[in-house]
Simulated assay, not measured.
Amino acid sequence: MKQIGRCRAHTNIALIKYWGKRNNDLFLPMNSSLSLTLDAFYTDTSVTLDSKLETDEFFLNGTKQDKDETKKISRFLDLFRQTANSEVHAKIESYNHVPTAAGLASSASAFAALAGAANTAWQLNLDKQTLSTYARRGSGSSTRSIYGGLVEWTMGEGDISESSHAIEIDDASWDIGMIVIAINKHKKKLSSRVGMKLTVDTSPFYPVWVTEAKKDLIAMKEAIKRKDFIKLGEITESNGMKMHATMLGATPPISYWEPDSVKAINKVKEIRNNGIPCYVTMDAGPNVKVLCRQSQMSDILDKLKESFTNDQLICSAVGEGIKQLTDTEWSY
């Protein structure tokens, strides 16, 4: 009898950024980070253990992937095989409701969903904190997608893998939302991993970035405790700009921005100057995310439509943590 695990995970957008690893093999970050899980973007993944398979098979959005892509997934699943003392191979079916590699955190939801499905398929019953350390080994930001709401990824200590995991800080049920301005949904030319390493290795601003990120996290957690949306937004915008400034200091300089990224940033500032609090953040890609109050989202959207098309604007409420899917919910 085949064992099957099916899981949904939502993407997250970092408000306090993670940029740089102190251990590339274990995906241990240089600084702790904090994110907001979004319900508009998610990945559904099925892991079917099959003793008849001689190798793992990986299908993304219904298309069988090549050996190189499958090898990445197999290496990740080896963590679960080792824990389960199992050698059985799996068929992996993943449906990504996020544009892949466009700076919209598709890897976060992808590996969180894969971790959740593998946990069920191998019947390991790992708790969420432990599962977040496994998910981290596929993609650093995926450790945060195990949980919903506002989530902290603690950097941990030294090279101790188990010490670096995610914690749910707050359910973010106090009128928080996000609008994504999709400038370019295509795969970016420079991957986050390459850009991250180049920044760490060559940017003279990098040590300052790490110090500032730690300060920002302390201030952010205090703002969350007070449910101070204005302060939350100000820190979010400042922290994101610091990260991109640090990238510009790399050799050669790194910029994921496009002309319409600048256009979006200026438009959000215009809306804010006209009395509606909203704040921008950007990850490793040209797309701009707008942190706002959910109750004011429609007003902001109307203003953004003056500069961007309807299909470029995606509204999202706060997302939940990973969820096991039933046969009925798995409708692919």
Rank of each mutant, 00 (worst) to 15 (best):
E237H: 06
E237S: 12
E237T: 07
S238Q: 06
S238L: 04
N239M: 02
N239T: 00
N239P: 06
G240E: 04
M241A: 14
M241P: 01
M241Y: 09
K242N: 08
M243Y: 02
M243S: 10
M243I: 01
H244N: 10
H244C: 07
H244R: 01
H244T: 11
H244E: 13
A245I: 03
A245E: 10
M247F: 03
L248Y: 09
L248A: 07
G249T: 01
G249V: 01
A250C: 05
A250W: 02
A250S: 09
T251S: 12
P252E: 08
P252W: 06
P253V: 13
P253L: 07
I254W: 03
I254F: 05
I254G: 02
S255E: 06
S255G: 09
S255N: 08
Y256A: 06
Y256P: 07
W257R: 02
W257G: 03
W257A: 12
P259S: 05
P259Q: 05
P259F: 12
P259C: 09
D260L: 11
S261K: 01
S261W: 00
S261P: 04
S261E: 02
V262S: 06
K263N: 06
N266Q: 07
N266I: 02
K267A: 14
K267E: 15
K267S: 14
K267L: 11
V268H: 06
E270Y: 08
E270G: 00
E270W: 03
E270H: 02
E270P: 00
E270V: 05
I271H: 01
I271F: 10
R272A: 15
N273I: 03
N273S: 15
N273K: 11
N274Y: 04
I276F: 14
I276M: 12
P277H: 08
P277S: 13
P277R: 03
P277A: 08
C278R: 03
Y279Q: 09
Y279I: 02
V280Q: 15
T281F: 08
M282I: 15
M282F: 10
D283Q: 04
D283A: 15
D283M: 07
A284E: 03
A284W: 01
G285C: 14
G285H: 13
G285V: 15
G285T: 11
P286C: 15
P286A: 15
N287F: 14
N287V: 15
V288G: 05
K289I: 09
K289S: 10
K289H: 15
K289D: 09
V290D: 12
V290K: 11
L291A: 05
L291M: 11
L291F: 07
L291G: 03
L291E: 02
L291K: 00
L291V: 04
C292A: 15
C292Q: 14
R293N: 08
R293Q: 13
R293V: 02
R293H: 12
S295P: 00
S295I: 05
S295R: 02
S295Q: 10
Q296P: 13
Q296D: 13
Q296G: 13
M297V: 10
M297K: 09
S298Q: 15
S298A: 13
D299Q: 11
D299K: 14
D299L: 14
I300H: 09
I300M: 04
L301W: 13
